[in-house]
Design a protein around this nucleic acid. Structure first.
Lengths: 348, 348
DNA sequence: ATTTAGCACTCAAAGAGTTAGAGTGCTAAA
DNA sequence: TTTAGCACTCTAACTCTTTGAGTGCTAAAT
């Protein structure tokens, strides 16, 4: 495995990504940075095929990269094109400035990615998980009817209405609110668990049995908060992409289950996964490129694209890297200045 | 245009809906209720084509209905199959009884429709619009940060975080809450208007100028309440339907803009709109079948399906009619027993 | 005056046969 | 070790043909 073979492999992948057609020895030999004859390239390509990096759709066709071919290309061979200043400032404009709410930030990133890459964008948001409960309220709103409210330090608000068996008098409400406030206030969302709420149910039931629905309600709200939000946008782009099986794409769009878990178990830095290799998101010839962004020193979510395996990695990866860095930077500004992400959040 | 021609038109549409293939004169002549020869039918079909009710994909193929063909069929020709008692009680079971929360009711209707028709179901809910404000709360949750909460008599909850220029002391908060409670409590959502809030801004500003963001926030929340909720469920069914353009379907699923307005401007009674005829929801060969349900004497929302133009109108329309009637009946039971929806309202 | 049988005609879809050319592997010379 | 030359392979594109469902028209039957 000499360096010329690697160079040829890189060239084949580049050409294949560019044209979408199997690439032959002649096409490679014409490239500027290749100075050997087609025959030599043929020999090397045969060797690369032997090694499992290339394959032929049929005997008399050119070569296309295999999974390992792509893998080697992505990990070692390609050289990503740095973003120009215009591109950077375009992205900056699309993202929004320091005072953009977090949620809008990642939504903008998704829009930018769809537009630029013409692929589906995926973003997740686990920010609420790393915040702490800043306020719990129970508000009576009708006969035996109570609204519970859970507010976190990052500005997420969840509410839920609960119906009780009996109405609470002032003292009971006071007791409950106090108890809950004491036990939840300042607790990080991450720490909340079903067991914790089970204990609380036991505790309040000792005082008054019919309070437990309220605790159960709080438990559900906290589950909502812990769940990372996954959004796939621009998925129509995948349908117009003919190297992907429409059937599989449709199935993926319908229930993107598993993708969330997959995204959670990835490491930091750019990750590339091929659809056919994972069982959680099984679109045949697809490729998932994601990177995590951080808020402060915690991983706060992922951001990337799903496209055909034949996407322009060289071009796209720098975009994703830049976006995650920028978002991490924007999010980690000052932690106390809470950015609001309510329904129609309005920060001015 | 004699009655035999109409009968033949009806038969052609029925057959086309059944088989999905262009239907020829021979197929029609074999039907039980048709007692003329294929030649006669051919003549009539040529006439129907002349009149614009049928068309041929190509010269030597059978006929398929045109838009006007479908229109005439739906308005005059088809005879809807009455629901059997089993079907009715099946729907009753799926809907839930008198004590089912309103929101769950229409959600159940949507589920039932998707399941039975194998199409996407659309439902809207304007009930909150006809309810009254039952509670307004302002809750301090951080420095200069306040969550405002608007709760209506039907159990809808809207919240929003607002940031103020200055922090409020106890007295100021008290004043504001009191003022708002006084002015909004018991007011019907329908009556709320921007002018009303403008006046309130003026009033509270006289007391303390920096309170106005809170009023503006309330104004936005009230707009949210006035807006009818639109839910499309089971939209994946549209993707597995090959007479619809997948591309258009996915675009529709992602941003169902315009549909809400379209649904609002429909009249009472069953309505059928073809996707290609409206510009608000433009899925090529699709058909929207909806009907409005009432709460008391007010139109409280719509309910129906989106499917291929070639749906079984005969079968589906009675279902939709039954559901809207039943829901109208269930909702108009007793107005005072307020029922609350189980899940988190909104926050996102 | 309708309706019907008969028949020639049309056209899309499917299959068979042919060709063109891009690409290969191998061999032998440089 | 590299390269030129050459025979070989296989798909994609094209043409030609066949098939069959369905038509419109005409002339006979009701």
């Amino acid at each position: 495995m000499n360096s010329r073979k690697l160079k040829i492999l890189a060239a084949v992948v580049d050409e294949y990504i560019r044209t979408g057609e199997p690439v032959g020895s002649k096409a490679i030999s014409k490239l500027d940075n290749i100075n050997v004859s087609a025959a030599t390239i043929r020999n090397d390509m045969a060797a690369l095929e032997q090694l499992g990096y290339l394959e032929q759709p049929h005997t008399s066709a050119g070569r296309i990269p295999t999974f390992s071919g792509y893998r080697l290309y992505i990990d070692e061979l390609m050289n990503p094109s740095a973003l120009s200043d215009e591109e950077k400032s375009r992205l900056d404009r699309m993202l929004g400035g320091k005072d953009t709410p977090e949620e809008l930030l990642i939504q903008n990133a998704a829009t930018a990615l769809t537009e630029i890459t013409q692929c589906a964008a995926v973003v997740t948001n686990s920010v609420p998980r790393f915040s702490v409960i800043s306020k719990v309220e129970v508000i009576p709103t009708g006969k035996r009817l109570y609204v519970i409210l859970l507010i976190t330090s990052n500005g997420s608000i969840k509410n839920k209405a609960c119906r009780l068996e009996f109405d609470l008098n002032h003292e009971q409400l006071e007791f409950f609110t106090h108890y809950i406030e004491e036990n939840l206030s300042g607790v990080s969302v991450e720490e909340l668990s079903e067991e914790m709420f089970d204990k609380m149910v036991a505790a309040v039931s000792a005082y008054m049995v019919s309070l437990s629905p309220l605790v159960m309600g709080l438990c559900e709200l906290s589950e909502d908060l812990r769940q990372q939000e996954l959004t796939v946008s621009g998925s129509e782009k995948l349908l117009s992409c003919d190297e992907l099986d429409k059937m599989e794409v449709v199935k993926f769009i319908e229930h993107k289950n598993g993708l969330s878990d997959l995204l959670e178990e990835t490491f930091s830095g750019i990750q590339v996964k091929f659809g056919s290799e994972t069982n959680s998101f099984a679109i045949g010839n697809s490729s998932l490129i994601v990177s995590k962004y951080r808020k402060g020193n915690k991983e706060a979510g992922s951001l990337g694209i799903i496209g055909p395996m034949r996407v322009d990695y060289k071009k796209i990866i720098p975009y994703i890297e830049y976006l995650t860095q920028k978002i991490s930077y924007l999010m980690s500004g000052d932690d106390e200045d809470i950015i609001i992400t309510g329904t129609t959040a309005d920060t001015d």
